[in-house]
Design a protein around this nucleic acid. Sequence first.
DNA 1: AATATATTTTAGATTTGTCTAAATTTTAAA
DNA 2: TTTAAAATTTAGACAAATCTAAAATATATT
Lengths: 221, 221
Amino acid sequence: MNYTISEENYLKAIYHLQLEAGTVTTNVLAEKLQTKAASVTDMMKKLSGKKLLNYKPYYGFSLSPEGKKIALFIIRRHRLWEFFLSEKLKFNWNEVHSIAEELEHVSSRQLIDRLDEFLGFPSFDPHGDPIPDSRGKIKNVNKIPLLLLPFHHTAEVCQVTNQSEEMLELLQHRNIGIGTRLEVKKHFDFDHSLEIKIKQSSFTISEQLAKNIFVSYEQGI
Amino acid sequence: MNYTISEENYLKAIYHLQLEAGTVTTNVLAEKLQTKAASVTDMMKKLSGKKLLNYKPYYGFSLSPEGKKIALFIIRRHRLWEFFLSEKLKFNWNEVHSIAEELEHVSSRQLIDRLDEFLGFPSFDPHGDPIPDSRGKIKNVNKIPLLLLPFHHTAEVCQVTNQSEEMLELLQHRNIGIGTRLEVKKHFDFDHSLEIKIKQSSFTISEQLAKNIFVSYEQGI
DNA sequence: AATATATTTTAGATTTGTCTAAATTTTAAA
DNA sequence: TTTAAAATTTAGACAAATCTAAAATATATT
């Protein structure tokens, strides 16, 4: 019931890649974890030995139900700490991730459940990512990419998928954050940039930026 | 500037033993860390290689100024987390230690300084142990063992040195905690037990318990 | 279908922190 | 002061997680 930091990082990375890409390969996982393919293979054998993975050599791997459950708990810890850092310790959006990477490996179940309570059982972290509850369940939101938002309909930013320093710096400059209400005025075919309006001011943002912004359409969360 | 969990645990343990006993030996350290003497010797070589220890084979070792500084920072992290767990997450006195053992190894300096600020720069943890400030300085209190408190002088419990489950269970039952005001009525020579008075009620406590309780005499902290 | 290329796995080495058992050094006792 | 006992260190081994280089397998190309 207790896993090493390394095992936890592998499980979490596999979970994320499964969500993003559906299928996970040795090389992609190695890239994500900044390690080598051979090391990944070693760990795959270890994790499948513990029944956390379905693994067939040369054919790939995927999380078992138990492995997924554990991954969700690690993600729960990560996101609750991010919420804490942002909400209580007043860290910026772009500072919380790396600290939460360390905190997430503190394993006391009771600690996390009390932290959850202390924070008021939040459903989303500062990036808008959903926080699994104490049973590992994730709240689903009706969200669409900003690129698909129809013109002249106000929507609310609910998630930002790229969490790099650079991206978050840009968002802060533009005053865009989770909960920001905006509407799309126009698409420019030439470079696929968008004109958007927040409160009274309008400006354009690149396709690259817009790709990473998700909004909830009909209603707030 | 970054140390492994194991290195940190050794530095911390040496610091504590130096305070308690003045001198630290291989066997005592091995006992404290639940490991073997040979492992301690290995680590001593490693830490003295990093200039954190003065080490002369067969003659013993002690923290260098740099080693002491690091130990104090680890203790700072530990005690701030203990304070957080107790004050904010409502953990009992006797539950905070083991969780803080894990949290103390999360190394972000900024995290700890912000946590400190969030908690209101506390000077003492829930056991009454002093919390080093951001420069590593410890506040000194005029404290004496309860055994030495003169009769009929009210004093305030300011520290409890044994932090085992069993000890803390007993203290909770007796309603003794940091800040409790009490006076000593009598010493019994037969078993060296003490009669003490808290508020209106008097009862006796064993020498063993009294040994671990420290009080501030003239005035509160 | 045969071959070339890319991907993945195996084999063997390395580092960290640990262990046991043996050797060394210090300390205590006769 | 020599010997016995205790404490400490060394030597050699092991598990975890990683690496490089080589081998095995799968995929793509002709």
